[in-house]
């Protein structure tokens, strides 16, 4: 099981054909208190780079993009009642959605942990 990262601060964890997607700990720190998450509908097909979800902090709304293409197979309904899970555990319980990969080769364009860390440091 590997975790890859997008330059837009999403993480992708792949198990077989299914990828779980969330935003990174760095991203939630930048957002501040998350107060609302709008999730996609299960069954929707999304292409890499599409806007799939919205995360609202007290400060502002931010789009979450699909880091890879596929079909949404599950969303994290727990975030509707407890959006603060994104702050508390961005890399775990704060996941946003799962999608069935349509092109696993897209994963190769994403960063590994070391590369993402360098990306964050460059941005900061």
């Amino acid at each position: 099981m590997t975790t890859r990262y997008s330059k837009d601060h999403e993480w992708v964890r792949v198990e077989g054909e299914v990828a779980t997607v969330g935003i990174t700990t760095y991203a939630q720190e930048q957002l501040g208190d998350v107060v609302f998450v709008e999730l996609p509908e299960v069954g929707k097909t999304v292409a890499k780079g599409d806007e799939v979800a919205v995360v609202e902090s007290v400060k502002a709304a931010s789009e979450v993009y699909a880091p890879v293409s596929g079909e949404i197979v599950e969303t994290n309904g727990a975030l509707e009642g407890e959006p603060a899970k994104v702050n508390a555990d961005a890399a775990g319980e704060g996941w946003f959605f799962k999608l069935r990969l349509s092109d696993a080769s897209e994963l190769e364009a994403l960063m590994d942990e070391a590369a993402y860390k360098a990306h964050v440091e460059a941005e900061a």
Partner: peptide
């Protein structure tokens, strides 16, 4: 993820 106002550390 994008859309937030730019943070200014500089």
């Amino acid at each position: 993820m994008a859309g937030q106002p730019p943070e200014t550390s500089s």
